[in-house]
Write a protein that binds this DNA or RNA. Structure first.
Lengths: 219, 219
DNA sequence: GGACGCTATCGTACTTAGTACGATCGAGCA
DNA sequence: TGCTCGATCGTACTAAGTACGATAGCGTCC
């Protein structure tokens, strides 16, 4: 292959392009499908070529996590702190729904990238701007992020938002129960989960309101 | 090896013993070290032998997750619902600190085992006993578990509870910052995290109180 | 009591994945 | 024209999951 062909085929490989492809691949086929070989194929190259742009698979994961943080909106400066934090948490949830493989990785990596740090900085500054003392900032941030990540973790295991798929899953599980087992669980499912209009996601707004109210009243 | 030697060496291999060893191994060496081969070595046998007692690695993970659920105390029947739920959430946190590899697995599996289902049943029944309607039960359970799992996820990435290790980690990160970068982050760390007596864990009780209060007042 | 078959065990080998090592190849420069 | 350098990639080693089939005690039935 001549260099001209190579150049025409695609712009030169770069760390950024590798990470782009990694996110795309994980979104499309799941984090389990994010292998060095699959990534190379996706980029039209061979496995070992990637090693000239990233240090290894761990570095790819670190980079990908930083990408996800970069997608989350910072709390807007021109909103009162409560509304700013609400905006940020909603944005985080939306991002984590686009990247359902991300939550377990985001909290378990110990090499935060620049976007990760910048985002933490913005959130801390916003809480501080709201008049919270350091102790309360610590509590509030731990609480809010536990909620956001935990909720995302739960949502990631659900088939899809909205309609009958959750119902199908629930029915499948319940049908396998021995008679009379788990009565509250069964009643909860039939009386609530299987009702038309049910949505797991609405609990997010409920929880977010509750947390913000609680933090505010502690201030 | 004669059968007598075999029998003396260890009681016959069984699904339960395989899962026991899997939990032990994950606790000791991390979930990444939980391989079929390592598990076989741990049990003094060979990889393929395990396949007569479990269907494969996925089945081991499912079984291990159910084990973890089994360790979590159900909400005690003889306590008011708030205190019962508090007890259960504290127990869950303690269990997840013993098994820091578990949170990402617990919510992402879709084959709940009997202990998992029994535990959900007990929690739902307790909330119901507290007079919450189905809608609020749904909100409360989603919220409480998001918090518990999310908090556990955060704690899992911390070195250890208590003393100077978190400080060391924080200092390592901060020292690498360019001058003047992330000012709030730096101030938060120096003014709060690095202070003697700091503990991430106390935010758990703060959050749990806040959630229980909020849910109660919505009732 | 001897052959039969069941069940747990395990040796071998195939597949997928991460990645170390070193060859190649084209571009720019002396 | 030949040298050097950076990007690319062929080859191969290691680790891991697991399919296939052989083996070997043990109880059972004629």
């Amino acid at each position: 292959m001549t260099p001209r062909m190579e150049a025409a085929r695609r712009t030169t490989l770069t760390r950024e392009r590798v990470l782009d492809a990694a996110v795309t691949l994980a979104d499309r086929d799941g984090i389990g499908a994010l292998t060095i070989r699959a990534l190379a194929t996706e980029l039209g190259t061979k496995p070992m070529t990637l090693y000239h742009h990233v240090a290894g698979k761990d570095a790819i994961i670190d980079g990908v996590v930083d990408r996800v943080f970069a997608e989350i909106d910072d709390p807007p400066d021109d909103l009162p702190w409560r509304e700013a934090i609400r905006h940020r948490c909603r944005s985080a949830r939306a991002v984590l729904r686009r990247h359902p493989w991300a939550p377990p990785l985001m909290e378990s990596r110990q090499n935060p990238g620049p976007a990760t740090l910048a985002h933490h900085e913005a959130v801390l500054a916003c809480l501080r701007r709201g008049g919270l003392d350091w102790q309360l900032v610590a509590h509030a941030y731990a609480l809010l992020d536990a909620f956001v990540y935990g909720f995302a973790l739960q949502e990631a295991s659900l088939p899809f938002e909205g309609t009958g798929e959750i119902a199908g899953l629930a029915e499948g599980i319940i049908d396998a129960f021995p008679d009379g087992a788990y009565p509250t669980f069964v009643e909860f499912t039939t009386r609530h989960v299987l009702q038309p209009g049910y949505s797991f996601g609405v609990s997010f707004e409920f929880g977010l309101d509750l947390l913000l109210d609680g933090i505010d009243s502690t201030r």
